[in-house]
Write a protein that binds this DNA or RNA. Structure first.
Length: 160
DNA sequence: GCCAACGTTGGC
DNA sequence: GCCAACGTTGGC
């Protein structure tokens, strides 16, 4: 029996979709389309459950960091963008049988960080040195987070 | 824009 | 199944 809820970190480029965009979305909810990495997909498909909590991380940003907290409100279902030739997330190998091999989940904002928790702060905070985020070369766009790490980051976010 | 690190592809 | 070439990620 796996402990619930579980905790995750999801990367997004704020120029594409920021935490503010999530706050402005209907019901502060969005589908998390465009994940095109098998490891990340498998975590969403197999391990994401309703009620799991998510750190929303801004990558390719100035500075990069955790911008807010969200929760999973819908478990994995097919990502239709993979089948859409007009989408930037189109995957021509996906639709051979009319079915997307990629999935997405829906997340709903819980709260924005009072102040963005930068990667630099995360690097320099005791207890966070094992986060995948700060490991060299770790690029996964979806990462598991431990309860202890979650609590520390939430405190840094002013959301403890 | 650079580039290290990693993932994917495809010829063999 | 190997592995070189290529593409992507993402901090800087």
């Amino acid at each position: 029996m796996i402990q619930r809820p579980r905790f995750w970190l999801m990367k997004t480029e704020p120029e594409v979709f920021s935490f503010d965009d999530l706050m402005r979305a209907p019901r502060q909810t969005t589908c998390w389309e465009g994940v095109r990495n098998y490891q990340a997909r498998n975590m969403m498909r197999d391990d994401f459950k309703i009620g799991d909590e998510v750190l929303v991380y801004h990558s390719n940003a100035t500075p990069p960091g955790v911008a807010g907290v969200a929760r999973v409100v819908r478990e994995a279902y097919p990502d239709p963008a993979a089948l859409d030739p007009d989408s930037e997330y189109f995957d021509e190998k996906s639709g051979a049988h009319g079915e997307s091999r990629w999935v997405m989940v829906d997340i709903q904002a819980v709260a924005p960080a009072q102040k963005l928790v930068s990667l630099d702060v995360i690097r320099n905070t005791a207890g966070l040195e094992d986060m995948l985020l700060v490991k060299r070369g770790q690029r996964l766009s979806i990462q598991p987070v431990t309860l202890a790490e979650w609590q520390i980051v939430c405190r840094l976010c002013g959301l403890a």
